[in-house]
Design a protein around this nucleic acid. Sequence first.
DNA 1: CCCTGATTCGC
DNA 2: GCGAATCAGG
Length: 158
Amino acid sequence: MPVLSPTWTVERIELLKQHFEAGLSCREIAADIGVSRNAVIGKLSRLNLTRGRTLDERRPQDRTPVPRPRKAVPRLQFEMLATIYGEADTAGVTGPIDDANRCSLMELDANSCRWPISTPGAEDFCFCGNAAHEGQPYCIGHSRLAYRPNSRARVMRG
DNA sequence: CCCTGATTCGC
DNA sequence: GCGAATCAGG
């Protein structure tokens, strides 16, 4: 007898068929023959002995190509951010916000942008001080930062 | 989460 | 051709 793994000999194939027709699960068949479950299923598929289960639901004629990331999915941070926040928005947000009007808490008035600069409590802590947008406590640029349109998730599987 | 079968694809 | 990886349903 060959010491090498005989893979699928006629004996194993017979056992495979017998067990399959007996109604045993692939798990049982695999355990009995001594191979992995996928090996059994793969062999059955090759022999066209599948019980035609998912074939009906899997629409064999119009199989979804399923772009399978066989290894990795290298995505640039930029692309993800652009997708999440919206391409047009990122440009506006990342644009330069005038900080020439920075002022302290005392100097803030109703028309001054109250966006905090630096960390609260720091010696140089101050506010943006730019002209605030109508009905908003921040200037245009900082209003955009405050209103992040971040609500994109949970959209999988059609 | 576990299980199952079925398909895909690298070897 | 084989089977691990993967997918999809239960």
